[in-house]
Amino acid sequence: MVFPGTNCEHDVAYALERQGARPELVWHTSEDLSGFDGVVLPGGFAHGDYLRTGAIARFSPIMSEVARVASTGGPVLGICNGFQILCEARLLSGALMANRDTSFICRPVHVRVESTNSVVTAGTRPGQVIEIPLNSYEGRYVAPGDEDQVVLRYCGPDGELDDRFNPNGSTDSIAGMANGPGNVAGLMPHPERAIEDVLGSVDGALLIGSFVASLQPA
């Protein structure tokens, strides 16, 4: 999906392609996703993040199609701003707000796999530690109390859970969520930016690869 202000779509398309998918960029005014096996909402600043991050993007024409794909069990993944949009669209529970320290965070972080029952973690092991970059100001996940599935938590290099390793003050160090069935998932850090040695980590390929493996012909 490409909204006005989305800026990670080419990186995501490249990462998907390397994992064997055939991505196409779809503009937000499109009203038809038939023929697609899955949907990724990449990062950026959709609609300028006016009002709240993701709040306006939720009303883009394409979002009713995204909801349809989600409700029929199709794989839907939101990364960073895409995660914020999925939360605003109530396809995932919770919300994201300004980081605890009111600073923009742009650095690699470690996350630990909490559940493998999601399109983004199906190819990982429970407890596996993955290093991928975080790049956000409004990355603090706030849980509503009845959240669905936590799939990733911020952690130390050996998987330690501690407030020291919670970069943005997210509730319970939550970095990624999924709905109950696991076909809709979202995460704040960027797996598509850690897919080749030259980028410093290849761990993101595990997550993107999980998503590609979840795609079934429509």
Binding site: L51, R52, A55, E88, A95, P144
Partner: peptide, 8 residues
């Protein structure tokens, strides 16, 4: 529906 987010 839009102006506020009930979680926050």
């Amino acid at each position: 529906q839009l102006l506020t987010n009930p979680v926050l």
